[in-house]
Design a protein around this nucleic acid. Structure first.
Lengths: 237, 237
DNA sequence: GCTGGTTTTACAAATGCTTTACAGGCGCCG
DNA sequence: CGGCGCCTGTAAAGCATTTGTAAAACCAGC
């Protein structure tokens, strides 16, 4: 997900295999998390004790200090911090240890990425820390609530589609400069290799957005077009 | 965990392996249950027949008297007491056998801790023996009385099924944001690993609910759909 | 068996996104 | 100033996906 502004859930991932660590980091960043990747048990424990995370993804097999030990130590400091164990072992013994150590869940490798994300979200949801109110986007006349896909102007409720919200969030992240169609297509749409643009879909979306949020769509004050450059968002910082 | 208002649900756990038994006990105590741990089949049966439990977690492989036998005997006394079987066996045969014995669910080892907890909760909710939320749910026009499986609108009484009430309660716990079908399936239905959804059962339930609680089911005001995201509950706070 | 609740099936309808097509508009040159 | 291009605005049509829902199938409890 793109342009999530605030309150990203913070994940600590402790996993020694570099490739997996990077893969997981990418996936969760893409899904709107803030990730601290650590590839070493001892430093993992330090990071965990340092605090500030909403959930720990913890590999069991680690050089130096294994996952169980880390889990144990973390539990002594914070009994509620959600911990999900990752492991190649599927033996009963491991489950038992995971249970004893107070892990919140236990995901055997090889796991499906989607499943892992789903479990992380489930655990966070229960702990009450998932994507709690994303900060509202204040455009002056209009206030956008990204999470609800809606906004308000003068008490009136305006429904948005998710794409519209993404666009607004992205533009808001670029306050003060015009954003080109090309940039929007790559960053919001996720298109790649946008060299020669023939699509007009960006323009259409801007028209629709203006109709929803501008006082006078014919003379836009919030989404202004910068000829040859793109669109720029104005309004309260 | 959501809105646990009343007496803790009482769990009987019958499992011979001491470590697992302790682990499970910890987990469920931590999750707000009252647990009676028993490590022996015969005493397990005694405890079960003694009554007073809301659900039995039953390992199949037990010394002396196996899980099937226990399940059978319990069923002769109490046809409704929820029983969840735990087993290392994963063959279809075993599942069929377990379910035929009257088990309500069947969790193969190694299981995910969260999944187990979720299934226990799902079964409890469905059994209707667990009244987590005695407080009436105020939806403005409609007031829902979860424990009675009914609601009122303008003096009219509306009957609900337990699943319907569960859905409403869950949505109510997520006021202000749309809830995805996936989330509903995992949190209300207790499904696990819902990666690609093919079932439409959530939609159907929403249709039925709308028919019951909306002033005009064709233009819902309470259960609104957020395209691509799910359903969202509106109405009084 | 019946019965009430739930799920699947199958198809219709609605919605959002993209494309198409055309109409202005803006800048720049002479 | 007027004309020529290129950029932008937007209505309308096309398309794919999501959602609504009737009806049938399923299934457990009596």
């Amino acid at each position: 997900m793109i342009g999530m502004q605030t309150a990203k859930p913070r994940l600590l991932i402790i996993e020694d295999e570099q490739a997996i660590l990077e893969g997981l980091t990418d996936v969760f960043v893409y899904n709107g998390y803030e990730v601290e990747p650590v590839s070493d048990g001892v430093r993992g424990l330090e990071a965990a004790l340092g605090g500030g995370h909403h959930l720990i993804l913890l590999d069991i097999m680690l050089p130096g200090m294994d996952g169980y030990a880390i889990c144990n130590q973390v539990r002594e400091v914070d009994r509620r911090l959600p911990i999900i164990m990752l492991t190649a072992k599927t033996s009963e013994e491991d489950i038992v240890r995971g249970l004893r150590m107070g892990a919140d869940d236990y995901v055997p490798k090889p796991f499906s990425i989607r499943e892992l994300v789903a479990r992380v979200e489930a655990v966070l949801r229960r702990s009450g820390r998932l994507h709690r109110d994303m900060a509202a986007l204040d455009l002056g006349e209009v206030i956008v609530h990204p999470e609800r896909l809606s906004g308000t102007r003068a008490g009136e409720e305006i429904p948005f589609t998710s794409r519209e919200v993404e666009i607004l969030l992205y533009l808001a992240g670029c306050r003060g400069r015009p954003v080109s169609r090309q940039e929007l297509l790559t960053e919001v749409w996720g298109y790649s290799n946008v060299e020669y643009i023939e699509t007009r879909t960006v323009d259409i979306h801007m028209t629709k957005l203006r109709r929803k949020i501008e006082r006078d769509p014919k003379h836009p004050e919030l989404i202004v077009t910068v000829r040859g450059k793109g669109y720029q968002l104005r309004g309260a910082p």
